[in-house]
């Protein structure tokens, strides 16, 4: 009795998951700027990037990799990049990601450190969990370029 109930629950859960996942994919196909709006548009994203830069400066795991950058330009480029990725009306005008990171030898430790700081910066700006996750999902395709894999 308990066994068949458990099995039924598992099957129902699997079906529900399947529907939810396919539903999410359908949503993605429509061009939408809801993530951009949830991040607070370009000014909200600029605040996140600013907080991210402060966190990077204090983080001994990665701050050396950022030595000598033009902070204002980096801030504006990354803001444009996140704005564009989230569906906003911006265009990233910086250099190609693979090219930029080519000789930096970025380790998984450093990649994790940056991801952590981005999450903390979003939390400081009260970005909802779902929006944080959606932004990270859109950043994931850059992982092989940044790690130069």
């Amino acid at each position: 009795m308990g066994r068949s109930l458990a099995k039924t629950c598992t099957i129902l859960l699997a079906i529900t998951m399947g529907l939810v996942l396919s539903g999410c994919q359908n949503f993605q196909r429509e061009p939408d700027n809801s993530l951009y709006l949830q991040l607070g548009e370009r000014s909200g994203i600029a605040n996140i990037v600013e907080d991210l830069l402060y966190l990077i400066v204090d983080d001994d795991r990665i701050n050396a990799q950022f030595k000598g950058i033009n902070v204002a330009q980096f801030h504006s480029n990354l803001t444009d990049q996140l704005c564009e990725l989230s569906g906003g009306p911006c265009e990233y005008s910086g250099r190609d990601m693979r090219e930029v990171h080519q000789s930096m030898g970025i380790t998984n430790t450093q990649f994790n450190a940056l991801a952590e700081n981005l999450i903390l910066a979003m939390e400081e700006n009260n970005i909802p969990t779902a929006a944080q996750n959606r932004l990270i999902k859109r950043l994931l395709p850059m992982y092989p370029d940044i790690r130069h894999l």
């Binding site: 998951m17 939810v20 996942l21 999410c24 909802p128 969990t129 779902a130 929006a131 996750n133 959606r134 990270i136 999902k137 994931l140």
Partner: peptide, 9 residues
């Protein structure tokens, strides 16, 4: 899987 279930991982 990021943002897979109601925006949850």
């Amino acid at each position: 899987f990021f943002a897979a279930v109601f925006g949850r991982n």
